[in-house]
Amino acid sequence: MPTTSNITSPLLIIGPVRSGSTWLSEALLQHGQVQSVIENRLLEAMYHELFHSFWAPNLEMTVPEPERRQRAVAAVRAAFCALFRARHRSGR
């Protein structure tokens, strides 16, 4: 199971839709050393909730800015790790 610390080399597929990303993602899924996840706009949703939503200012009052950002990064990274398929001990 990947954790926030054992992802050795994240590979991010970027670009527009309909350009071969699904082929690449499915090929990567079959690789023994790779785990893959479709991001599917989760990142934006979490980023928005943490930094730009209605309740984000409340979070600012309880935690100073640098720490708040660090916590947010850790939380989002952990969320993505939880989404990887639990097939391998480590993931990329």
């Binding site: 597929i13 991001e39 980023y47």
Partner: peptide, 20 residues
């Protein structure tokens, strides 16, 4: 990880996966 399409918070992505 598929991070397709547009409008991504890129600065946050770089913080999230600095080794990406």
């Amino acid at each position: 990880m598929k991070l397709l399409s547009r409008g991504r918070p890129w600065a946050f992505v770089f913080e999230l996966f600095p080794e990406a």
